[in-house]
Computed example of a mutant assay.
Amino acid sequence: MKELLVIVPAYNEEKNIVGVIDELKRDIPEADILIVNDCSTDNTLNVIKEKEVDYITTPFNLRYAGGVQTGFKYALHKNYKYVAQFDGDGQHVAKELAKLYEIAKSDECDIVIGSRFLEETDYNHAFFRKIGTSIFQKIIKMACKREITDPTSGLQVLNRKVYEKYSKINNYPEYPDANLIIEMLLQGYSIKEAPVKMKERIYGESMHTGIWSPISYMVGMFYSIFLILIKHKRLKN
C-alpha cells in the first residue's frame, strides 16, 4: 500500500473516467486510486471494472460530498497518510496533483489547494461561478484574514488529521467549498494554495449547470457560512 490515496467520485462519467484513470496511473504512480462509483445509471461501473482499479459502488446516489466522504472512510480504514480529491469529469490534471502532494509532504501543511487563479491561465470560469468565487474570496478575507484565491477548487491534498475529521458524520457538508475553508481556518488548520492548470469538461454536465442549481448552491453556501461564523463566535465567548 502507498502513502497517498486519490479519491475519484464518479457519477455517470463513462466517457470521462477512462482518461482520468489512465492519466493518474501514468502521471502519479506513487499513489493508489479509489473510484467511488456513486450509483451511476450509465456504463461507468463496467468501464471501471475493465480498468482493474479499486472501486466502491454506493447503494444509492450520495451526491458529490457523500461520495468523497465514502472515500475518506475507506482511507481511514486502510490507514493512508494523505488523501487527494480528484474529479472524475476529466477537468483535473494528474501532474498538477503530483505537485500538490510534494508540497503537502515538504511543507507539512494540513490542506493544499490547487488554485486556478494564483497565476494567469486560459481556464474559462463561468460567469456566475466567477461572481461566486469573488464573493467567497472577500468573505474568507474578512472572516479569517487570509487570502484564498480559489475557494471552490476541488483539487486538494489532505493529511490524515484533516480527512479523519471529514470522515465523521456532519463534518463534510453537501457543498464542501468556501464554508469548509472558513471553518478549518478558524479552527487553526494550516491551508496553502499552489497554482495549477485545469481542463474544460468534454463530456457530460456539471452539477452546477442550469439556473436553479447555482442559485441553490449559493443560498446553501451563504447559510452554511453564516452558521459557521455564529458557532465560532459563541465558542470564542
Rank of each mutant, 00 (worst) to 15 (best):
I56S: 03
A75E: 08
I33P: 05
D38Q: 15
N61P: 02
L76S: 07
L62Y: 07
I56M: 04
A75R: 13
T44M: 03
D38M: 14
D32Y: 12
T44K: 03
G71P: 06
R63L: 13
V53Q: 10
T44E: 02
F72Y: 13
P59T: 15
I33T: 04
P59W: 10
N46V: 00
G71M: 08
T41S: 06
K51Y: 03
I48K: 05
K73R: 15
K49A: 01
L45C: 05
Y64G: 04
L62P: 03
F60N: 15
G67Y: 02
T41F: 00
V53P: 12
F72T: 05
L45A: 07
V53C: 13
I56H: 10
S40E: 04
D32W: 09
E52L: 02
L45R: 13
N61I: 02
T41R: 11
A75F: 01
V36L: 09
A65M: 09
H77I: 03
Y80Q: 11
F72S: 14
P59C: 11
E52T: 00
G66C: 09
N46Y: 01
N61W: 04
L34R: 01
T70K: 06
Q69S: 15
G71I: 10
D38T: 14
I35M: 11
K78T: 05
Y74K: 13
L76G: 11
E50M: 06
V68A: 08
D42V: 13
N37V: 02
V47Q: 12
T70L: 01
Q69G: 12
G66E: 13
P59K: 15
T41A: 08
V36F: 06
N61S: 07
F72D: 06
E52F: 00
H77S: 15
H77K: 14
